[in-house]
Design a protein around this nucleic acid. Structure first.
Lengths: 193, 193
DNA sequence: AATTTTAATTGATTTAAATCAAGAGAATTT
DNA sequence: AAATTCTCTTGATTTAAATCAATTAAAATT
C-alpha cells in the first residue's frame, strides 16, 4: 500500500526506517472506483491525496457550463485543491477517479503534524512544490504561446502515459481546445507521417 | 534594507530576533538600475532575489524571435528562474529591472544553509511556493479559458499596481496577446463606460 | 445481443485574435 | 531643442480555432 509513497519520499529526501513507520500512521488509505469522487464542487477539500494506483482528474464547470480539466494525476503523484485545502474555502473543483484507484489521504492536521514531527517531510513537500511550480510555469508558457498542434505534441512527449490512458476530449479540455479541434489536429499529424 | 523581507517572513512564520539577525548575513544586497539585468539568457541563475524596492520582469525570446513575458515582480516578492537555480542549468530567461531596484540575493548554497539552520525559513519558502502554485493555477485557467478582455480586466483587478506601472506592450506579452489586440481591448472597455 | 449513452470524426460557417502596415504620440538621448 | 527611439493606436486583411450540425464509432447498460 505504501510502496509508491515511500519511493516518492526516498527519491527526494533521506528519512530513517522509524520515520517511515511513523509516517504511515498519518495516512488514511482509501479506494475509489472509476467515476467516484474525492472532492465535490462546493465542498471543502480536507484531503491531500497521494495516488498509489490509478488515475484522477480535477476539473471545474464555468458560468457558461463548460467543463475545464485542471489536472491529471497518476501513480506517484499528489492531487488536491490546494487553495481550498489550505484556506478551508469551498472548492470550485471536482476531483474524480478515471480508473479504479488507491489513495493515501492526508488531512490538513495530519499534514501539519507530520511536517512538525519529521522536518524532512516538510522538505519533501517543499521539493514537490518546487517541481509543481516549474511544471506549471511550462504549462503557462505552452498555453500562452503554442498552437493547438504544438500543445498536443508536447503533451504527448512529456506525459505519454496520460495521453494514452485518458479519453481524447479530456486531453482537449486540459489543453484548452475543443474536442473537434483536437480531432482535426490528430488527423493532420497522422497525415504528415 | 531588510524591512520588506522581514515583513514578508513575519507574515508567514514566527522567528526570533536572533534568527532574523542571522538571516541577514546570508543575503547579498544589490542595486540594479533600470534596464540592468540580474540574469542573462544562457547563464546559470545563481540567485534567488527578494525585491526590497522596484520592479523586475523575466522574459524569454522564442525560436521565432517573439518575446514572452513570464513574470513581473514588485516590492515584497521573489524572483528567480527556479528551474535554472535548482538544477544549475542554463536559463532561457532574462531577468531585468524595469525601474531602479534594490534586491536581496540568496545563492543556492546560502538558501540551503539558511533552511538547515532556521527550519522556519524552510517553512517560509514552502508557504511562498504554495501561494505561487495557487497563483499559477489561476493564471493557467485564465490563459486557457478567458477572452482577451477578461484576461486584461482580471489582471487589472488582481494586480492594479503592476498594470499601472508597466508599459502596455509588456502587459500584452504577459497575457499572451499582441500589443494591437490589447490596445483595441482597452478602447472597447473605455467605450463601454 | 440490443439499446442507450458516450466519444470521436467530418463538414460548413463564424469569430476572436494575429498579422501586416502606417502613422501619431511619448519618452530618451544627443 | 532636435533627433532618435520606443510606445501606442487605428485600419485592412488573414488565420487558427470555435461553433454549429450531423454522422459514425465505441463503450456501457439493460
Amino acid at each position: 500500500m505504501f510502496q509508491q509513497l515511500f519511493k516518492s519520499i526516498q527519491e527526494k529526501v533521506i528519512v530513517t526506517q522509524e520515520e517511515m513507520e511513523l509516517c504511515k500512521t498519518f495516512f488514511i488509505p482509501k479506494k475509489l472506483r472509476k467515476k467516484q469522487t474525492l472532492l465535490q464542487e462546493g465542498d471543502i477539500c480536507i484531503y491531500n491525496a497521494f495516488i498509489e494506483k490509478g488515475i484522477l482528474r480535477s476539473f471545474y464547470i464555468d458560468e457558461k457550463g463548460n467543463e475545464h480539466l485542471v489536472q491529471f494525476a497518476i501513480e506517484g503523484w499528489w492531487i488536491t485543491d490546494l487553495s481550498s485545502f489550505l484556506t478551508n474555502s469551498h472548492s470550485i473543483y471536482t476531483i474524480e477517479a478515471l480508473e479504479d484507484s488507491e489513495l493515501l489521504l492526508l488531512t490538513t492536521a495530519a499534514r501539519e503534524a507530520l511536517m512538525d514531527q519529521i522536518p524532512m517531510f516538510e522538505r519533501y513537500q517543499r521539493l514537490l512544490l518546487q517541481n509543481a511550480y516549474i511544471a506549471n510555469q511550462a504549462r503557462i508558457n505552452s498555453a500562452l504561446t503554442e498552437t493547438a498542434e504544438e500543445k498536443y505534441i508536447n503533451l504527448g512527449n512529456a506525459y505519454p502515459g496520460i495521453v494514452k490512458r485518458v479519453p481524447q476530449h479530456m486531453i482537449a479540455s486540459y489543453l484548452g481546445l475543443t474536442p473537434e479541434t483536437l480531432s482535426r489536429v490528430r488527423k493532420q499529424i497522422s497525415n504528415k507521417s
